[in-house]
Simulated scan of single mutants.
Amino acid sequence: MIDFPGNTLVKRRLPKEAFYKHLPLSAALKSKFVSDVDCIILENSLTRKNLNLARDGEIKEIMLLSITLKKQNFDGKIVEAIARQNPHQLIFLIIYGDEFQLAVYQGRLYRTDWMKEKELSLTLSGNTLDEIWDNLVRQTAISSKTVLSRKDQTIHEQLKMQDEINRLHMVIQKTEKAAWKEQQPKKRFELYTKLQEYKKQLEEITHGQA
C-alpha cells in the first residue's frame, strides 16, 4: 500500500491537454499521449508543513501523480516528459486495470515491475523532504538488496550500481541467447568465455566485492 498521511491527499484530476499542449513533445509523442493515457490525477502533495518536518531542505514539494492507461504497453517517454518539465519532484503511480507500477525520473526513467495492488508499497522515511525523496527513489528504482545495504553510498552512487547490475543482466541474457544459437565452435567458445566474464562481474558486484 501507499502509506502517505491523510492530510497530504489532493485527488485532483489534471486535464491531459494541460500536459501535451504545453510540453515540448514531438507530434508522435503527442499522439501517444492521447492514445495511451486515460487520465492523470494529482494524488498527494508532500510538503514540510503537512508532514510536520522540523528541518528544511532544498526540495520544497514532492507530488504523487497517478496515470491511468488505456493500454499497458505505453511509451515511457510520456512519463519522462512530464517529469523533466515539472519543477517539483514527482513519483508516478502507473495504473492499467488491476495492475500497478511505480516510476520515477532520476537522470533517466526507472520503473518497477507490474504488480497487484496488495503488492504495492511506498512509505515515507526521512527528516527532510530531501531525505524522503531519496528514499522514495530507492523504493522505486533500486531492486538489488546488495545496493540497498550500501548505507554509506549516496542515492546517485546506488543508482549507478543498480544500473550496472541491470546492464549485466541484460548482456548476460543476450550473450546466452547468442551462444545457444551459434553453430561455429570457435565463436560459441568465445561467447561462452564472454558470458563467464559477465557473470563474474555480476557476482562481484552483487556480493559486495566490487
Score class of each variant (00 low, 15 high):
R12W: 07
H88S: 11
N127E: 13
C39R: 15
Q106K: 15
L53I: 02
M63D: 05
D113V: 14
Y20S: 05
E80G: 04
V37A: 06
T140I: 08
D134E: 15
T140S: 08
E61C: 07
A83R: 04
L93P: 00
A83Q: 02
S26Q: 10
R150K: 15
I91Y: 01
E117M: 14
M63S: 07
Y96K: 13
I78H: 04
A18P: 00
I95W: 04
R150W: 13
F100P: 00
I142W: 03
H88K: 15
T140E: 03
N50V: 09
I67K: 08
S149F: 09
V147W: 10
L46H: 05
E131Y: 01
D130E: 10
K21S: 10
D113T: 14
R55F: 14
L53M: 06
C39V: 14
T128E: 02
M63Q: 12
V37S: 05
T123K: 13
L25T: 08
R12V: 07
V104N: 09
M115Y: 09
T123G: 00
F92L: 04
L90W: 00
W133N: 01
D98G: 02
L25Y: 11
L51E: 02
R48K: 15
L102N: 09
I41K: 06
K32T: 09
T140F: 03
P24V: 08
L90A: 03
K118M: 09
L64K: 02
K77H: 12
E43R: 11
G57E: 04
C39E: 12
Q106L: 05
N73Y: 13
R111Q: 15
T123L: 06
L90F: 01
E58S: 08
S125F: 02
T68K: 13
D113H: 14
G57Q: 04
K116I: 04
R108F: 10
R55D: 07
F100M: 09
S35T: 14
E43A: 03
L46D: 01
R48Y: 06
E61P: 00
K30W: 10
N135H: 10
S45A: 14
S143P: 00
Q106C: 08
L124Y: 05
N86F: 07
L148T: 03
L93F: 10
T68S: 11
K77R: 15
P24C: 09
D56Y: 04
Y20F: 15
I59Y: 03
Y105R: 09
